[in-house]
Amino acid sequence: MRPSSPVLALVLALVSVATLPQARAAQDAKARAEQQDARQKLEGVRKDIESLTREQRETANARDSANAALAKQAEQVSAAAKAVRETEAELEQRRHDLDQLSTQRAEMQAGLDKQKGALGDLLRATYTLGRGSDLQLLLGDEDVNRISRALAYSRYFQENRVERIRGLLADLSRLQEVEAAITAEQQKLEATRAEREKRAAELEKQRGAQQKLVAEADARYKDQTQRMAALKQNEHDMNALVSRLQKVIDEAAKAAEPAPAPKGTPAASPLSNLRGNLPWPTSGPVHAYGNGVIIVAPRGSEVKAVARGRVVFASFLRGYGMMIIVNHGNGFMSMYGNNETLLHGVGDMVEAGEAVGTAAAPAGDNGAYFELRQGGKPIDARGWLSKRH
Rank of each mutant, 00 (worst) to 15 (best):
M1Q: 05
A9R: 09
L12Y: 06
A13F: 14
L14T: 05
S16Q: 09
S16D: 07
T19Q: 10
L20S: 14
L20C: 15
Q22W: 12
R24T: 10
Q27M: 05
A31W: 04
R32S: 05
E34L: 15
A38T: 03
A38D: 01
R39T: 00
Q40N: 14
Q40G: 15
Q40V: 14
K41Y: 00
K41D: 09
E43V: 11
G44W: 10
I49K: 00
E58D: 15
A62S: 11
S65C: 07
A66Y: 06
N67Q: 10
N67H: 06
Q73T: 07
Q73E: 14
A83R: 08
V84L: 01
V84C: 02
R85W: 07
R85D: 13
T87A: 08
A89I: 08
E90Y: 05
L91R: 11
E92F: 02
R94Y: 06
L101F: 12
R105Q: 15
R105T: 10
Q109N: 12
L112I: 12
D113P: 02
L119R: 01
G120S: 13
D121A: 13
R124E: 10
T128Q: 10
D141H: 09
V144C: 01
R146M: 07
A152E: 15
A152K: 13
Y153A: 06
Q158C: 08
E159A: 12
E163R: 14
R166E: 09
A170T: 07
L175E: 10
L175F: 11
A180R: 15
E185W: 02
E185A: 13
A191R: 14
R193K: 08
E197V: 10
G208F: 00
G208L: 00
V214H: 05
V214A: 12
A215N: 10
E216Q: 15
D218G: 05
K222E: 14
Q224C: 08
A229S: 14
M238K: 03
V242L: 07
K247G: 02
E251F: 09
A253S: 13
A256D: 08
A256C: 12
E257W: 05
P260K: 00
L271N: 01
G276A: 15
N277Y: 08
G284N: 00
P285E: 00
H287P: 01
A288G: 13
G292M: 01
I295K: 02
A297Q: 02
S301T: 14
K304P: 02
V311D: 04
V311Q: 04
F313P: 00
S315V: 01
L317C: 09
I324L: 15
G331T: 04
F332P: 09
S334L: 04
G337V: 02
G345L: 03
V346C: 02
E351C: 12
A352E: 11
A355I: 06
A359T: 04
P362V: 13
A363G: 08
N366E: 10
Q374V: 09
G376N: 06
I379R: 04
D380S: 15
D380M: 11
A381D: 06
R382T: 07
G383F: 07
